[in-house]
């Protein structure tokens, strides 16, 4: 993926650029709003990571509003120290696709950028999801693995659906909390892990090869293990 990061803090930018390159992406960096807007408007990117408070006369919000006014639909994630609910609402209203508050864990940023840019591609409405021998029928709300029916509670179904839609990507606990439960608080307990392990009991335990993997320090990933 080709990713643009507009961030004036050299350390943060360097850290993100390095991490994204290690993850196999091509990264461009602008350290002020004017250059950022120029690059975002004149080149094609799969995703833009945008700081809100930028030098150069154009802040993140203005940059994004200008971009959206030019019918540029590149997925944009805000990366900002302004973390109040109203700030997030403002960022999303201006046309942002996601909002990550500083300080952040790189794994969270990577997972969100990858999820966001896939969403940006727009797969169109689907009725079936497949990951290996795991099948999900979204119309009949039935789940099968290796031809065997798997019984899921409604919430487990939504959890699995989210994981299948992001198959092959790291999904963090916060993403699950927001995407599956629509909760915007930070639980003190390991409640997400418990829900994942329950799901594992049903879709992985009775079968040979596990599909739902834990990614250390980051979250979970649903994928077929390469032999």
């Amino acid at each position: 993926m080709r990713i643009l990061i507009v961030e004036d803090d050299k350390d943060v930018a360097g850290f993100v650029v390095k991490g994204l390159r290690e993850a196999g992406h091509t990264v461009e960096h602008a350290d002020n709003g004017r250059d950022g807007l120029f690059m975002a408007a004149s080149e094609n990117f799969d995703a833009i990571i945008l700081d809100r408070m930028l030098p150069g006369g154009i802040d993140g919000l203005r940059l994004l509003e200008t971009l959206r006014a030019q019918d540029n639909a590149t997925p944009v994630m805000f990366l900002s120290a302004l973390g109040q609910v109203d700030d997030r609402v403002k960022g999303l209203k201006a046309g942002g696709d996601d909002y990550l508050t500083k300080p952040f864990a790189f794994a969270e940023l990577l997972a969100r950028v990858e999820a966001m840019s896939r969403r940006g591609k727009g797969e169109g409405p689907t009725t079936r999801l497949n990951v290996g021998d795991l099948e999900m029928d979204l119309l009949s709300r039935g789940v099968k693995r290796a031809g065997q029916k798997v019984d899921l509670q409604p919430r487990e179904f939504r959890l699995l659906e989210y994981l299948m839609r992001h198959a092959g990507q790291v999904v963090t606990r916060t993403m699950l909390l927001e995407g599956v439960w629509d909760y915007h608080f930070d639980p003190q307990t390991n409640v997400i892990d418990v829900h994942i392990s329950r799901l594992r009991q049903k879709i992985d335990k009775p079968f040979d090869a596990p599909l739902l993997h834990t990614v250390r320090n980051a979250g979970y990933m649903l994928r077929v293990e390469e032999p």
């Binding site: 439960w181 418990v194 829900h195």
Partner: peptide, 13 residues
């Protein structure tokens, strides 16, 4: 309902 269901998993454990 949702919250009770959400945390029931931890409670049960």
């Amino acid at each position: 309902e949702d919250l009770a269901e959400f945390f029931d998993a931890v409670a049960e454990e």
